[in-house]
Design a protein around this nucleic acid. Structure first.
Length: 626
DNA sequence: AAAAAAT
């Protein structure tokens, strides 16, 4: 049996040698081991570094697949794995202590009830946090604008946490927060930290860019660092005397788009640095085997899109039995995209602990009835937190609406692009994937550095496009709805609505891609007859934001208001004032929203906050300012 | 009506 193992190691070793040799042959340069190469794709580098080194740093005790596999093979019964080079770390030299540079992946471990931090890794630090020369863009911290942002908390008396301190936050987490360049909590963080720390469920209205992700990661990780991993449940594999093949994450973060999952994962990696908590991301469009390998190397804090997660649960690679925290990010978006069945399968149909046994945090920009129903089913006696948009539509963004016929859009766009300063990024929204491709081609032919992102591009292409755009190598990105929400790209100075959306909420989200982090932004929209459906709501929005309102828009709105144009009382999805979130509907309506019968619709609907009363939404009626 | 998401 030990021969078996030895053979396995040998074969892996020779493969590694060959790899090293061939790269030496090709290039007389010094061989750069995989772990030292510029990281391109997580899974790939993780895989090759596993193959190149006989041992991988052990995860915390009894947790995570890397350790399990090794134990398994050493037990001699390694037939299942012997053919798989990715598990070449089958011979064990004992648990890693983070001191071996080659295997230092910035992880710590939990040992004998103690949090043992991994050794610092300068390279990884640069990658995660940037360096003095190339500072990583920090998203939305640290400016006085934050003080004016309205915050509403209902459901509990909560004392804001105005500084990052211990307590309530774990000291190691504070170190990582500092490394990330976060100096002061944003409004959402000031409240989400104490709310979550106190053990309450949370329903929050806060957009990306408000520090929302860190807002839920901080209290969750702080508790994880303090308390260590939960014991693995006894499962089928262990009942048969094997180590479990499943990962048992303690935190699950669900988000609607792959990009959002990646973004959350990247944030998580920063704050998990050197800790025992291993962040992990799974989403569609990428090689599932690579993701499974990643899961095997530890999966404590899992970011996922619903479809891929269901797949992995069905394959028995992930169990939710250990979930302590469930986060639903952009919940309204997930429902819009038809994810409810999958979400319910994950939350209610798998082995996730019940609502009383876990802590659930839900983020949503709007509070239509289906969200309220979801809240009723998934949350227990929750605290409602509503935070105004940072860089709200009204203040930081100059909005312009121009009348442009479809066939004139291209030349009009070129006119605009020619006037733009070279620095700064321009995001152009179109309605269809085809249009995104066509327009990108056109721009490239016109010598503009453009790229595009939409759902028909492969995940690799999407990530590359985003990277090109973020880095400024392509200062123009043409996008469909996939990029309208959630994506946090600093330095977007212009948003052009080449095609206007039919949903005014989408419009708000789109223009919210600019004017972030206290900067100002410009938004231009091309309007023509085809868009008269949102004329009325657009006018309301412009008025509210103190923006110029062209007369053609008024005429168009009047035209469309005959025969119930606009969206009547359903309009604006309860988002309220455009810059401020909805209210806790439980206040105005004591009972939980009921299913059947739409009679409760308006009454249980989130009240519009601030400027406009619900009156102006009554279909066809209400006094209008024009 | 389009887009997104598991293959």
């Amino acid at each position: 049996m030990s021969d078996n193992v030895q053979q396995q190691v040998d074969s892996v070793g020779s493969v590694t040698e060959k790899l090293a040799k061939s790269s030496l042959d090709n290039k007389p340069k010094k061989y750069i081991p995989p772990f030292a190469r510029e990281k391109r794709e997580d899974s790939r580098s993780a895989r090759s570094s596993a193959a190149s080194s006989p041992r991988l740093q052990s995860p915390h005790s009894g947790y995570g697949g890397g350790y399990q596999r090794r134990e398994f093979s050493r037990g001699g019964n390694g037939g299942d794995w012997s053919g798989r080079p990715s598990y070449g770390r089958s011979s064990s030299y004992g648990p890693g202590n983070g001191q071996n540079f080659r295997n230092n992946r910035g992880f710590g471990q939990w040992k004998n009830g103690q949090h043992v931090l991994g050794a610092p890794n300068a390279m990884l630090e640069r990658q995660l946090f940037g360096s003095a020369e190339v500072p990583k863009q920090t998203t939305g911290i640290n400016f006085e604008k934050y003080d004016n942002i309205p915050v509403e908390v209902t459901g509990a008396e909560i004392e804001a946490v105005n500084e990052f301190t211990n307590p309530p936050l774990n000291p190691h987490l504070l170190t990582n927060i500092k490394l990330s360049g976060y100096v002061q909590p944003t409004p959402v963080q000031k409240y989400s930290v104490p709310i979550v720390t106190s053990g309450r469920d949370l329903m929050a209205c806060a957009q990306t860019g408000s520090g929302k992700t860190a807002g839920f990661l901080f209290p969750i990780l702080s508790q994880a660092f303090d308390q260590g991993p939960a014991p693995i449940p006894h499962d089928e594999d262990s009942a048969l005397g094997y180590r479990s093949r499943k990962a048992y994450p303690t935190t699950l973060i669900l988000a609607p788009t792959r990009e959002l999952v990646c973004q959350t994962h990247e944030e998580s990696r920063k704050f998990c640095y050197r800790s025992w908590v291993r962040p992990c991301a799974v989403y569609g469009g990428a090689d599932i085997r690579a993701q499974i390998r990643q899961i095997d190397q530890g999966c404590d804090l899992l970011s996922a899109t619903p479809g891929r997660l269901v797949d992995l649960i069905d394959r028995g690679r992930i169990s939710l039995a250990n979930i302590k925290f469930l986060v639903l990010d952009e919940a309204d978006r997930m429902l819009d995209m038809g994810f409810e069945p999958q979400i319910r399968h994950i939350v209610e149909g798998a082995d996730m602990p019940g609502v009383e046994e876990r802590q659930t945090l839900m983020f949503s920009a709007t509070f239509p009835r289906d969200i309220q129903v979801l809240a009723r089913d998934f949350l227990k006696d929750y605290v409602f937190l509503s935070v105004g948009r940072v860089g709200s539509t009204s203040e930081n963004i100059t909005q312009k609406v121009v009348f442009v016929e479809d066939q004139e859009k291209r030349s009009y766009l070129l006119d605009i692009l020619h006037t733009l300063p070279p620095e700064g990024l321009t995001l152009i929204f179109v309605e269809t994937k085809r249009m995104a491709d066509a327009l990108t081609d056109f721009l490239l032919n016109s010598s503009f550095p453009a790229t595009s992102i939409h759902g028909d591009r492969t995940q690799r292409e999407r990530e590359r496009a985003l990277e090109l755009f973020r880095s400024g190598r392509s200062s123009i990105m043409v996008a469909t709805a996939v990029a309208s929400r959630g994506l946090d790209i600093p330095n977007v100075t212009h948003v052009i609505n080449y095609d206007l959306p039919t949903d005014i909420d989408d419009y708000v989200h789109r223009i919210g891609r600019t004017g972030r982090a206290g900067n100002t932004g410009q938004a231009v929209a091309f309007f023509n007859r085809n868009n008269k459906g949102i004329a009325k709501e657009l006018i309301e929005l412009l008025q509210e934001a103190n923006q110029e309102c062209p007369s053609f828009l008024v005429a168009m709105a009047r035209e469309s208001s005959f025969g119930n144009g606009g969206r009547g009382r359903y309009g604006r999805g309860g988002r309220g004032g455009g810059s401020y979130g909805g209210r806790d509907f439980r206040r105005s309506n004591n009972s939980v929203p009921s299913y059947g019968g739409n009679s409760s619709y308006t009454s249980s609907y989130a009240e519009p906050a601030r400027h406009h009363g619900g009156a102006s939404y009554n279909s066809g009626g209400g006094q209008s300012w024009w």
